[in-house]
Design a binder for these strands. Sequence first.
DNA 1: CCTCCATTACTATACGTTTAGTATTAAACA
DNA 2: TGTTTAATACTAAACGTATAGTAATGGAGG
Lengths: 183, 183
Amino acid sequence: MTRMMILGLLNNFGSMSGYEIQQMLQSSQTEMWAYVQPASIYHALRKLQQEGKIILETVEHTGLRAKAIYKIAEDGVLELRQLIEQSLSKSSVVFPASLYTALTFMDELPVPLILEALAKQEREIAAVMAAMKHGEEMKAQAGAMTVQAEAVFTNIYAQVGMQLEFIRKLIVDLESRQEGESL
Amino acid sequence: MTRMMILGLLNNFGSMSGYEIQQMLQSSQTEMWAYVQPASIYHALRKLQQEGKIILETVEHTGLRAKAIYKIAEDGVLELRQLIEQSLSKSSVVFPASLYTALTFMDELPVPLILEALAKQEREIAAVMAAMKHGEEMKAQAGAMTVQAEAVFTNIYAQVGMQLEFIRKLIVDLESRQEGESL
DNA sequence: CCTCCATTACTATACGTTTAGTATTAAACA
DNA sequence: TGTTTAATACTAAACGTATAGTAATGGAGG
């Protein structure tokens, strides 16, 4: 997630320093769902550089202080695409932050690929919902649920339902966008 | 969360080994929202023991293999209560797992304390919602939102609303339960 | 002009989680 | 009865995150 965020920002807005990335994350909407600590950013930058996904472009010196500016590498773009696709296709119920991040940068992928990934996620979530429904009926019959367990269950079920609806709406929107473009 | 889970289980079901804790987490409803890896359990057990929150009760030997059985200590019960209260009172929108865990074990706390904690959380979430609504109106006016950012926003907003509703329902249920008891 | 505070840019360390195991014992089956 | 598989019980190491800083610089106020 931190990785995707950094690669996405470097890809969309060009070369940046760790501090600038930090600023962007704090100011944009993303800070609502992604609380990325400075230390995590610098850690990720170091790793990404080691792996050759980003390149140290320049080091700006201001007096005694230095600022490292990183640039995304080809390998980084490839990884970014992979991360986006992964996050779009895997279920986002428990931890939706990576889906949100992926949506932020999804323009990096061709629409059909996005749709495929989202369809995969839809199937996954639908399966989870079905399994939950089934499991609940069994436990309700057995009377094996405390009041709070039942409340929790109901809440999770509602959350899953909402997430499913969200994905479906995204798919519909994208399909109509695609048709609009093909005209 | 792992800590709360372990302390809660040891408190409710008596002394157990790490493996038994693992089994309980896998079988119960909790595995739906809390994916606790074995290694995390053993790590937490070691830490809790070092801190004196749990006590190594016995070591059962079966041939060459040993099984460590832990018992909750007084300090552990105190910490459990604190963890529950904290999780009930802090906002659970981004990561509801700790709220769910706290609800699972909330019987450890007196109802008025639970209600106080939940009321605190309710205020927090309501404040977040108000702030979001305000922030969105500003950005909508400026037209500064991409389609996907808007979708994400709407989804988060809905999630927050649902969570607020959930907390409120819990409060109402608990209040009526309290009245029932006082008769 | 100089002091103080906020901003800039980054780091060290501890902590918890995840991955990927190992080794032993019990059960299943042939 | 021997072999293979599943269950039991736990560990080592790598990894990422969070806490809590540091030190330099720029600007504002007296």
